[in-house]
Amino acid sequence: MEHVPLKDIAQATGVSVSTVSRVMTHHPGISEATRSKVLAAAREMRYSPHGAARSLSTNKSMTVAFLSYRRPVSTQLVTASSDQSGVLEVLEAAGYSLLIAGISDDELRKPRELRILRQQRVDGLILEGPTLSAGFVQELVNMGMPVVHVDGLSGVSGLDIVLHENERGAEEITHHLVRSSGRKRIVFISGPSHWISSAERRRGYENAMRAHELEPRVIMFEDTTTDIGVEAARTTFEKYPDADAIVAVNDAVAIGFIGEARRLGVNVPHDMAVTGFDDISWAAHSHPTLTTMRTFPSEMGRQAATRLLELLSRPGEKPAPLTIRVGVELVRRESCGTTDS
């Protein structure tokens, strides 16, 4: 048999690459019809998971787990964008399979009880998001398991992390509000301080405000959802009624804020400019369209998988942990009063 890329099977069956991967790794939650269709195509195309032979000879499972907690897995992180490989493509090219799983509350309290570690031997872990507790992540690192955390949290030692250029991005978008939109009474809507992305974006905002000799104004919340954006709008209008701009920690908060502002009779951007961070799909379709910092999840996934493969290639070693940064890009739209041409 020859190695057939999962993307070829996906194209032949009309499903996503991640769905094919889940079928091949016996992941639950796949309908029997889809499973049968994918397996039939794999047999017809003479697919063979080329990691199997290597697993026998190297005593490795040739499997990596991708874990998240209380948030949907980013398909952009896992699979390729139009011009960039994600986690799955990098691992597949190296002969590894990928398991995708959520973490239960009980498992968060007892990392050694993770089903994916007890039931399926894996060689390494990629963790996504800051909602995981520092204690959980630290225990995984202490177990000696190779771990890379994408968009992680503070308070964990010996951990490799992949992050956006959060501070630079927030600083740039705040400068834009001052220089291009003439805003001066700018409020930052922050997430939890122990989330690295939130803390760094706040720092970038504060750096820019001080550079313009303006007073930073920060309102902190314990989550970063659209519902938080609604609450943030009400809090802002009560606490800072003279505010003329908002730098939201992410797009979800910004979109929730804009919706509530409109309900309360505040015109965005005439009365108040609003910006986000991430450039999620809603950002280009909100009303008004959202000025934001574009991030590149597929590149973050590629960097995370590449670093994990490096760790897996050095068993028994403890290389110094890396913090890997992925760039961001300002996208000017209607919500700040100026747009890209």
Rank of each mutant, 00 (worst) to 15 (best):
R168V: 10
H3F: 13
V266W: 10
A305Y: 08
V90D: 02
F257M: 02
C336T: 11
I189S: 13
S55K: 02
V274L: 09
R70Y: 08
N59D: 09
V187T: 02
T174Y: 02
V150M: 11
L308T: 09
H50V: 12
R332Y: 01
P241R: 07
L264D: 10
N166G: 15
I30P: 00
L132S: 06
G327D: 12
E213V: 13
I30Y: 06
H176Y: 09
D244Q: 04
E310P: 01
S335L: 05
G152Q: 03
I324G: 07
R262S: 04
E44F: 04
E222A: 14
V64W: 06
H270P: 03
E171Q: 00
L56I: 11
R333F: 14
E310H: 15
T292Q: 05
S197M: 08
L117V: 11
G265E: 01
R294M: 13
Y205P: 00
I324R: 11
F277T: 11
M24I: 14
D106F: 14
R217A: 09
S55C: 03
T225A: 02
A211Y: 05
R185L: 06
A245Q: 10
R263F: 02
A170T: 06
L309C: 10
E139M: 09
R294F: 07
V20K: 04
I116V: 15
L114W: 11
I196T: 13
G129T: 03
